[in-house]
Design a protein around this nucleic acid. Structure first.
Lengths: 218, 218
DNA sequence: CATAGCCTATCGATCGATCGATAGAGGCCT
DNA sequence: AGGCCTCTATCGATCGATCGATAGGCTATG
């Protein structure tokens, strides 16, 4: 997790870290340049506007989340397996890539309406995957919830929230957090426990595979 | 919900709405003055600095949340009743006072360390109330969760998340949202359903009582 | 010598905050 | 009643600082 050698990667990494810590509007161009080890003018050699940079970060993050979710759904034979996989993948991504997922979740309001629209479309596409899994489970009688759409919203808020409190050196190990969230989610949906589901290690590998070993971590 | 007649109330209301919609750093002094119907100079007759205003908003909101939670715990005879009450009160407050709770949840990072500390202390005090209820239920065998502290974090994220998506004219009625969240929460904790718990109306009255009919709504 | 990478210097705009001034309401002394 | 003082509420103008972004030039590599 050392600082990436290429300047464009350093700019991205610095932006992700600063936007997550201080917010988009709370981060200045000179501050960003300092963190990337460049002058504020050179910054513009590697990016468009500050908003372009934010859009790019969100785009990349959501693309990867969609890719990971697609793989989960392909390999999951049942709604319970799919939900277990979606939750664990989401939680692992939000823990290992805290900063970039936080930026996606909190800085949508910083985008102009035109730039926001395609990002929101990606987010909706991702959330629709969750919705359809809940509906399939509900239709099959595996899940019993009073209101599937409220359940979807509650579930996603709970899992995304991991990015707000998880720390890699903290009290809770990653696998424990992921599996606990999967357990809580399935309990919430009224599903019976299933010991045959893949453990956290499987989804940790999936997430690190999709995200690659590049350097926008945090 | 009309615009409060007193200028200081208008400043507060405008700040809550703007900070929630565009963020603290995304809201300018002149913009705030326009929304309150004052000049930017007159603004400073009713507040200290912009940061003072933010601190004041957070302080008030957390005080009320603590007051409401205290009342819930006083009147609840069991961990299940207490958790039902905490969840419903929290959800109702986050739905009826979306903007101010969003500001509390997302703008902590905008505060300087010295100003942040007492606010975080209030938040921790509130979260400890939840923690102890979960632990009591766990000790009594009413709740069964793999990890009480992860459960507390997951629960709070889920319930606070209501402020991110609830709209008063939307698809979901307030009472339905509150009761659904209580149901999901108790299912998450492994508690058996209990039809004898107070319905949402009780907690809606509690919240509107604590918040009063003043005009910082939204 | 062309290009990529990077700089200093600078732009106009806007930031949060303060200035001195004014209008009006209410009290108080004579 | 009239004159005077104080306090609140408000303003336009402006402060120094910082904002995001650009212009133009230097250096090194191919």
């Amino acid at each position: 997790m050392s600082r990436p050698p290429q300047p464009d990667g350093r700019v991205r990494a610095a932006a992700v870290a600063l936007f997550a810590a201080k917010g988009f509007h709370g981060t200045g161009i000179r501050e960003l340049a300092d963190a990337a080890g460049l002058s504020s003018a050179t910054l513009y050699h590697y990016m468009g506007t500050k908003e372009d940079l934010l859009v790019d970060i969100m785009q990349t993050s959501l693309d990867r989340l969609l890719t990971a979710a697609g793989q989960v759904l392909t390999e999951s034979p049942s709604p319970v397996a799919a939900m277990n996989g979606l939750v664990q993948t989401h939680v692992v991504a939000h823990a290992l890539r805290r900063s970039e997922t936080l930026v996606v979740d909190t800085e949508l309001r910083a985008l102009s309406p035109e730039r926001r629209r395609p990002i929101v479309a990606l987010r909706d596409e991702y959330e629709d995957l969750w919705e359809s899994v809940i509906e399939k489970g509900q239709a099959a009688g595996t899940f019993q919830v009073p209101d599937p759409s409220v359940a979807r919203l509650a579930l996603l808020q709970m899992c995304s929230g991991v990015a707000n409190w998880y720390t890699s050196g903290g009290r809770h190990a990653l696998a424990e957090v992921a599996e606990t969230h999967a357990h809580l989610s399935l309990a919430m949906l009224g599903a019976a426990p299933d010991p045959g589901l893949p453990p956290a290690g499987h989804y940790i590998r999936l997430v690190t595979g999709v995200w690659g070993d590049d350097a926008t971590a945090g």
